[in-house]
Structures are given as structure tokens and as C-alpha cells.
Simulated assay, not measured.
Amino acid sequence: MPYGFKEGPFPLGAWVAEQRRAYGAGQMTGKRAQRLEKLGMVWSVADERFQEDLEAAKAYYADHWRLCVPRSATALDRPVGQWLSNLRRPGALGDRPEWRTALEAVDEDWAPAWSAEWPRHFAVLRELVRDEEGPAEVLPGFTVHGMDIGRWLARQRKPEVWAALAEGQRERLEAIGVTPLPVTVHPELPPGAGSTSPAKTLSAFDKGAAALAQYKARTGSVKVPRAHVEQLPDGTEVKLGVFLSNTKSRRAKLTVDKLATLAGLGLEWAATGGAA
């Protein structure tokens, strides 16, 4: 009821607001509270609206299997996408832990720590293989909700991409039967045959992505100083700051797979196509 609402000359909206204040301050008797509750009194308007929006979110999840949704998403005539986006803002649920628990009960990835595209693809894959036994298999070209799930799955299994995933991402994939492809081992050349230099197994881009994943795992950030040099486990030094700067300037020429890798690591400009 709006605060300024009047029933005839009586300021009913203001009176209802005063009853809520008295109830919250412990200044109302049990009998008065019961009489108001019989009339449908809602003591916390915020909680009531949350429950209504939560029902809309559940309806969306039933159709799309995820709550990591675009801002434009709607369900039950409610702007569920914008509502969820607002709740993901830092501090939005600071004094409402029960709201966070309710959302996680619907979808643990409702506010993912990585690019939104990843949980959207994963949610569909999870539903596709839910009743299957053995390794998860979806062929490239199999599209759901406009997403090529088979192609996405094949990419996640690549050793260099798998290594760049966050621990939580790998855990989710393993839980539904997804494992990385074996690393290709190049046989050693016989003595005296051709060049003795080792075979090149990772491209410059793959080394840069691996270095970024390592830096993020250590620091929790993808903001890298331009002069920073990251050393990989095999001793390779990657000028990570320069790599990111150059890659961002060439983003229009990057393949979809490379953009997906960078977006999965948390680079917003790779997911949106614009500067972060």
C-alpha cells in the first residue's frame, strides 16, 4: 500500500507504515499483530517482494536451467534479469544472507565468479547429460538456446583450455563426466636426424592464456601491470602485461575460441567485444 494512500479522509497508508514500525520495534501486542495478519498484513515489504521475484526466478530456471541470465530476461511478467543483476552488486546482500541461501538453493552459479557465458553453456550441458552413463558426449553443432554446446564442450577438453579453467569450473565438469583430452606427447627424434630442438607444443597465445590463468590463481585479479613478466612452471617467461595489451588491441581479429578463452578467464572486453 502506498504511504500516501487514503481510505476516504483516513491516511491508511501512513497508518499501516506506523504499524510495521511498531511491530519491528517490539511495541505491538500479540493480539493486534494477529488481527492484522488475518487481514494479510505483510510485515516486511522487502521480504515479500523478494519471494515474489524468487518465484519468477524459479520459473525462469525451469525453462533455461540457470539463473546466470541476461539483464533483459523476464519471467511471470517480472524483470528477473535486472533483479538478479541488482542482487549481484557488491554489498547488495550484506544484511540478507537468507536471500543468498535461497538463490543458491535454486542455482549455485546464480552469481558466478567467472564470465557469464561459461555457466550458461555448462547449465545446458549438465541437463543434456544428466541421465547418461559414462563420459559426457555432445557433438559439435548441437545447439540449444542459440549456443553450440558440442563445440563448447570440445573446447573445454583441450589441455591448454582445461589448465586455464578455475578450480570450480573443472570440478563442475568432472562431476558430470567431462575430462580433459590427453596431452599429445611428441616422440624424440633419433640422434642426428634433423633439428634437435624440442617440438613446439604451445602457441604464443596459449602461453599467454596459461600465464594469465596462473597470475589470476595467485593474485585473484586479471589486472596485470604492463611491465609484468610471468614465469610458467617449465621456466618459460611470458611478458604477460604486453601480451594482454597487444591482444586487446587486436581483439577484432581474434577467433571466437580465443575470445571465449579470455572471457572465461575474466576479461570483460573479450566477452563483450568492447573495452573494459
Rank of each mutant, 00 (worst) to 15 (best):
E104P: 11
S85F: 11
A123C: 06
P79Y: 02
N86S: 11
E98W: 11
A102F: 05
W83D: 09
A105P: 08
W110R: 01
L76E: 14
F122S: 01
E127M: 13
W114R: 07
P97M: 02
V138I: 08
W65Y: 15
A116F: 09
W114K: 00
P112D: 03
G146S: 05
L87K: 03
P135A: 12
A116G: 07
F142C: 12
P90H: 03
G141A: 09
A75M: 07
A111T: 04
R89I: 06
V106S: 10
R96K: 12
A62V: 04
T101H: 10
A123Q: 02
A62P: 04
L84N: 00
R100V: 11
P135I: 03
E108G: 15
W114N: 09
E132D: 15
L76M: 13
G146L: 06
V124R: 01
W65N: 14
R78E: 04
H121G: 07
R71L: 10
N86E: 12
H121E: 12
G81E: 09
P97F: 05
L87P: 01
A56V: 00
G94L: 14
E117G: 04
L67Y: 03
D107V: 06
V106M: 13
E117T: 08
E108P: 15
T74Q: 11
G141V: 04
A105T: 06
A92D: 00
P70Y: 06
G91C: 02
L139N: 03
W99I: 10
A92Q: 00
P97Q: 03
A102G: 10
E117I: 00
R71P: 06
P79M: 07
S72A: 14
A59P: 01
P90K: 04
W65D: 15
H64V: 09
F142L: 15
A62H: 09
A105S: 13
L103Q: 05
W99P: 11
W83F: 14
A105H: 11
C68G: 10
P90Y: 00
A92I: 01
N86W: 05
D109C: 12
S72N: 08
